[in-house]
Each structure stands twice: as C-alpha cells, then as structure tokens.
Design a protein around this nucleic acid. Structure first.
Lengths: 220, 220
DNA sequence: GCTGATGCGGAACGCTCACTCCGCTTACGG
DNA sequence: CCGTAAGCGGAGTGAGCGTTCCGCATCAGC
C-alpha cells in the first residue's frame, strides 16, 4: 500500500541483498513500533528483521531517519486518499477522507504521533492536504451533509483526536475507532429539530494555534 | 482543588520543612510534567521545587510513586465532578461530567495518560465512576438529550479521545478542547430530520476491550 | 541551649539504549 | 573464477536518567 522510494535520488542502486534487508527493516519497524510504540529499541527492530544493528544503521543513519521513512510513506498514502475523496460529487468526500485516514492509521499504528507532526512535514504535501480538507469541507457543507459552522481546523482536530483513539485501541479492539468516528461525524451533521447543540459557543482554533499544537515536540 | 493526603495513613507527621518540600515537589511536578511530559527528568522536578533529588526520593520512593500521587488526586477530583453531575435532574449531567473532566485535565495536563490507566486504579473508585457514567448516560437518554444507541463504552472512548486532544493542545490553545467537545457532544444528540447518521453501523466496544485498551502500558 | 532524630543535597552508580567500529563475508563485473 | 567494492554482524562506547548513599544541616522536645 505504501510506495517506498528505493533511494531519495537514484544513486547507485543497492546490492540485491542490501535492498532486501532494507525492506525487511521497514516491515519489522512497522510491526515492532505498532506493538511496543516508538520507544521500542533499534535492536529489537533489527532482531525482528533478522539483521544486525550495524546493517540497520548503514541503511538509516539514525532511528529518527527510519521513522521518517515510515511516516513519509503514510503521508503519501493519506494524501492519495484525500485526492481520491475529492472525486466524490455528493459531498461525502470529507467522510471518505476521515474513514480512509482511519484505516491507514489503524494499519500502521506505531508512528501516528509523528505522522501529524507539522514541523518536519514537506510543505508542499502539507499545503495540498490542507487545501483538500478545505475543499472537501465546503463540498460537504454545500451538500447539506455538514453543518455550516464547522471549520477546517475543526476537521484537523478531529483527525488528531482520531489518531489518539486509534493509537491506543487498535491492539485491543481493531475496529473500535470506526464507532467513535461515526459518532464524531454525527457531530458534524446539521443540528436536529430540538435545536440542542445548535450553537457552538467555543471559537474554533486558529491555524496558527493548530500549527503550534501539532508542532509540539512529542516524546522520543 | 486537589486534596492531598499528607501521608497514606497518619504515621508520625512530617517535620514542618519536610511537609513544605513535599508540597513544593508536587507543584513542581505538575508544572514540569505539563511542560515537558512525563519524560521530564526527576532532576528537573527537584530543581524547580528548589530541593535536591535526594529529598525527592525520600518523600517519593520512585518517580512512579510521585506520578501516582498526582494521578490519585486527579482521580478523586474527577470522581467528585461525576458525583456532582449526578445531581442534575434535567439529563444534562453527562455533559457536565464531560466538561468538568475536560477542565480538570486541562489544568493538569502532564499525567493524563496515567490518569485513565485502569491497571493501577483503585477498583472502588473506578467502579463507582463507571456506574456513574451509566447512570448519567441513561438519564440523558431519558431526557431526550442523548441518542438512545449510545453506550457507556462510547462515553469512555469519548473521554479517552478528549484526553488526547487536551494533552496536545492546551499549551498552544488552552480552550480548543471545548470546541472539540461541543462537536462530540453534538454527535451524541438524537439524529436530525434528514436522517444522516441515523444508524451507527459499527458495534460499540465491549467492556473487556475497553479495559484492555486503557490498560495497555503507556511509555515511561 | 542541648541533643538526638529527622531531613537535606548532590556526587556517584548502574542500567538502558542510540550509535560506532572493524574484521569478516558476499555479491557481481570482467 | 577472481578481485574488489559493498555489505554484514555484534561487541563496544558514551550519554542520559532513575536511583542510592552518606556526610552535613536543621528542627523539636526538654
């Protein structure tokens, strides 16, 4: 599902065994980080991959670089989901995006905290993602599926919140996040006849605040 | 706001300066953990408190014990909020609980991950809290403020989700969580006339799954 | 004030973990 | 098949952090 670029720029291609080990390391990292979180040691990743730590470090100069590689792949995947969601014509694209993002994150739950960290995001991809959210949101509102006072930052918060839920429940209940997401989407709907929740009294986050919040350095 | 029991059982009271240092340490811990997360070093806590690390360790046998003390206080506070919410007669108690829990967590955002960790929760308090959630939920549903297919585990998930949002946004946007909570509460309302989101297709978590998810060992 | 118990500080210890180094092995072009 | 560059493994290193220890300071009862 995740495209891996063999090397940033086409330098000399890796030797066959080396390329194979690289793939094994990435797979092992996904598994180990999902099981034990990012605090898992590099030795464990190397062990699961069936290589020595030296090999790991020749391929990825730091643990951070290894994580970045995984995160980069997820970012590309989620951006693809957003682009696909933008094809919907009935205003349901924003919901497709949320579900799709949930599925991707559930499949690779180890690096989610890094995933949404803006500080190291390539600006182009991030900007496109942001504008796609805006487009999808407007489309949903125009179709009457989403209440008009919802903002882009609300959607971002919702994604961030979903991340937290997935991160801590996939292991015990692989699909629990779907239920939670359904309830959150219900919260985005136009208000009912009783008028409860008709007015959102709290102001939405500013973009700057959102940036600051997601840029806050996560541990490890 | 948080009651601190001077010592588990009334052994000999602490010397005056020692008791003072104990308070200073707890205050410093709240501040430091809120700023840098639980990964912050004990030396930093001691430094902010203006004492040596030896003093910290004489009062709290491990870093974990210090954290537990903070968490215990929060648990008592939140239980009190739940009890107070149970006094509401119009079915809005569940919403009061959510808002109250949010406020408490926002005020002390360093140890939230531990806060909801069931594994080390005193069973009595936890059981009471659980049953209070059930009571509040039923009351809200009876009053027509909450859709009937919402379960206790849904509410627990919502609390868990709120935790994640607060943890990472209080610093940058102290009240952003209120907006998010409003939207989530809107999702709990009876469905509107258009019937969108009328049926929750995903099953709720079982209590066992919830237990497993929240018991999952958090890092550090 | 005197005295003993209680408390204090911070240097030192040891464990964990990211990262490095180097002698050995393996792929691959000619 | 051979030479060599590329790759490999895993013991070793150093830094960070939780925890301990012990000589000195401070409180409290008489």
């Amino acid at each position: 599902m995740t495209e891996r670029n063999a090397a940033p720029i086409a330098a000399r291609p890796l030797r066959r065994d080396a390329a194979e080990n690289r793939e094994r390391l990435l797979d092992a990292a996904i598994q180990v980080f999902a099981e034990h979180g990012l605090d898992a040691g590099v030795d464990e990743v190397a062990r699961v991959a069936g290589v020595g730590t030296g090999t790991l470090y020749r391929r990825f100069p730091t643990k951070q670089a290894l994580i970045d590689e995984l995160v980069g792949g997820m970012r590309r995947s989620i951006l693809a989901v957003a682009r696909r969601a933008a094809l919907a014509t009935d205003g349901s694209g924003i919901e497709d995006l949320l579900v799709g993002a949930g599925e991707l994150q559930a499949a690779q739950s180890g690096c989610l905290r890094r995933l949404w960290n803006q500080s190291d995001a390539e600006s182009d991809a991030l900007n496109e993602f942001r504008s796609l959210i805006g487009v999808l949101l407007k489309s949903g509102q125009a179709a009457g599926r989403i209440r008009p006072d919802v903002t882009s930052t609300d959607v971002s918060m919702l994604l961030w919140s979903l991340r937290g839920v997935i991160e801590s429940t996939v292991a015990a209940a692989p699909n629990a996040w779907r239920r939670h997401l359904e309830l959150m989407i219900a919260g985005l709907r136009p208000v009912g006849p009783d008028g409860l929740s008709a007015v959102l009294s709290a102001k939405p986050m500013t973009v700057a605040q959102l940036r600051a919040a997601t840029a806050a350095a996560p541990q490890s």
